[in-house]
Deep mutational scan, measured.
Amino acid sequence: MPSETPQAEVGPTGCPHRSGPHSAKGSLEKGSPEDKEAKEPLWIRPDAPSRCTWQLGRPASESPHHHTAPAKSPKILPDILKKIGDTPMVRINKIGKKFGLKCELLAKCEFFNAGGSVKDRISLRMIEDAERDGTLKPGDTIIEPTSGNTGIGLALAAAVRGYRCIIVMPEKMSSEKVDVLRALGAEIVRTPTNARFDSPESHVGVAWRLKNEIPNSHILDQYRNASNPLAHYDTTADEILQQCDGKLDMLVASVGTGGTITGIARKLKEKCPGCRIIGVDPEGSILAEPEELNQTEQTTYEVEGIGYDFIPTVLDRTVVDKWFKSNDEEAFTFARMLIAQEGLLCGGSAGSTVAVAVKAAQELQEGQRCVVILPDSVRNYMTKFLSDRWMLQKGFLKEEDLTEKKPWWWHLRVQELGLSAPLTVLPTITCGHTIEILREKGFDQAPVVDEAGVILGMVTLGNMLSSLLAGKVQPSDQVGKVIYKQFKQIRLTDTLGRLSHILEMDHFALVV
């Protein structure tokens, strides 16, 4: 994948999101292997301009796509893939009243899908469409860049269908997702969380590099694949309309690839034109409109599966009536509230959605109805927002919020430890010299600072030695090549209790 991002070429006709291997024109390309080798690009942008032909009021008969309808489940399912879809609609009884809503608040519980998330729908649909058009064949390999849930859905379907599955996901995604993927037989590649989507090191860039190296491999490409919004247009939206008897006044959905909100909203605009569509985008993402909503100094966020630093091709923002931004604290607070007060075992993005819903639905009156999409299960986040310690460490809970008995030293300040200034190293000294210094002084790690004293990161003896043994660096290389740029900081005025929580999850903390 090139470091400079080429513009994806656009073909003359058809839909841009065809499933299957992508040609340089962004659509299915038939021909000899030699032709494909000559024409197939190194990668295709996940934010390529959409060429979708959908228009409100256009006859369904003019759609270029294969459409399906929700099917009634048999008493005995032939395999677990038949437990994807037909998820329950559940009334939220307490939270709406707590925040003064007059309307009825309903939750579409997508964590009841077989793999635990709304992404099971698009995973199965992308595979079925690729099999139907002859792209996927027995023994082929599926590769997908994902925040985890699409990966789980694909790995689940691949396990049943017999495909090899490789999932490329950023490091910030939970260990629970990784464990589930491994249990399903998927191979996992992790990428830096802070890598831009168009960087060769991003999950998108690495996935395309693997595709170019592995024979008979395919990126189904949830960011561009029409099967993504079509899955929701054909099934999720129809289920909502049936469950609500066609009567709903507002739908609120958090947005990642945009397939969920695009597919549902398009069908609702056709069948229930008075329904307002509300999009939820986390602070630090750029999906919301108008652009002024996205202006923030924050560039990272903890909530998973929603928000991006690019506009995915499948996201149709014209069908969203209003956007709201959400933050991590309210997302996790509301997710825990949904679990504790409503018994809905949902993930953090569901918290984002409901946090926005109780604001947006203030305009609705008694007798009206708001539906929220709860995308995934708490299963993926047992060591994250479900953990009091994690919430404390991230600053989303305060010590006084917890009532468990603490040891005698818990409320003492870090400054009472009488710490001395640490050994520091410059980023320009060599790895070999740094190892000598650390061994001589008896230290395992040291902060790396520039000549102005600005902290650049941390270097550890173990990481340097393993990097040297693996051949990633040489003793003569500058130590700046092996620094940890993500590390926890703590102030002298913070409590030892807070430091204790940090050290339970990290090997060190830097006192500043």
Rank of each mutant, 00 (worst) to 15 (best):
C275Y: 02
H232G: 00
I127F: 10
P78L: 14
T5R: 10
M169Y: 02
G96L: 05
I188K: 04
P70W: 11
M89W: 01
M89A: 04
P273T: 05
P33V: 10
E239H: 01
T68H: 15
P273G: 09
P145H: 00
D249M: 01
F99L: 07
D234V: 03
S23H: 10
I167C: 09
K75P: 09
K36Y: 10
G205C: 11
P138D: 07
R209V: 09
G263L: 00
K39H: 05
E131Q: 14
E171M: 07
A231E: 04
T191G: 01
I167Y: 08
D140K: 08
M173I: 10
L210S: 02
I167W: 08
A231T: 12
K271E: 13
K30H: 09
E110C: 00
W208A: 14
N93E: 06
C15G: 09
S50R: 05
H65M: 13
S175Y: 12
L101W: 00
A226M: 10
T53G: 09
G263E: 02
I80T: 10
T141D: 09
P6A: 08
I240G: 00
M89T: 08
P138T: 15
S3R: 15
P33D: 10
R125H: 08
D120T: 07
G31M: 06
P6G: 10
L156I: 06
N194T: 11
E239I: 00
I76M: 12
H22A: 05
G134A: 10
Y233N: 05
C275A: 11
K75I: 06
L42V: 05
S147I: 00
L81C: 07
C15S: 07
T13F: 09
Q242Y: 08
T53L: 09
M250N: 00
A130P: 01
L268Y: 07
E239V: 00
V178C: 09
D35L: 06
A231R: 07
I188M: 06
G259F: 00
M173W: 00
V90G: 01
G246Y: 07
E4R: 05
G162N: 00
S61W: 10
L156Q: 01
Y163T: 01
I84F: 11
K267D: 08
T146Q: 02
I219A: 04
V252L: 14
D221N: 13
G148F: 07
I264Q: 02
Q222V: 04
P21W: 12
T262E: 00
E213R: 11
H17T: 09
D79F: 06
D245L: 03
P2D: 10
I76A: 09
F197D: 06
I167A: 09
L124W: 14
A38K: 11
C275G: 06
P229R: 01
A60S: 11
C244R: 06
A48E: 06
D245F: 07
E128I: 13
A48R: 11
E9P: 10
I142W: 01
A265S: 15
S50M: 03
T236G: 07
V90P: 01
E9M: 05
P138C: 14
T5F: 10
V252K: 09
T150Y: 03
K30I: 05
D129L: 05
P138I: 07
T257D: 00
V206G: 08
P74Q: 09
V90S: 08
T150N: 02
G151V: 01
L101D: 01
T141R: 09
P46Q: 01
T5I: 12
T13L: 11
G116Q: 13
L136I: 10
A130T: 07
K97I: 15
E62T: 05
L181Y: 00
A60Y: 12
V189T: 07
G100R: 03
D245Q: 08
I219M: 07
A253I: 03
I261V: 14
R45G: 11
A195R: 07
G263T: 06
G20K: 13
G162R: 07
L156F: 05
I143H: 00
P88S: 11
R18G: 12
L106C: 11
T141S: 11
G116R: 13
G96N: 11
K97Q: 12
S202T: 07
E239D: 05
N216F: 07
E29D: 14
P49C: 09
S19F: 10
K108P: 03
V204S: 03
I240Q: 01
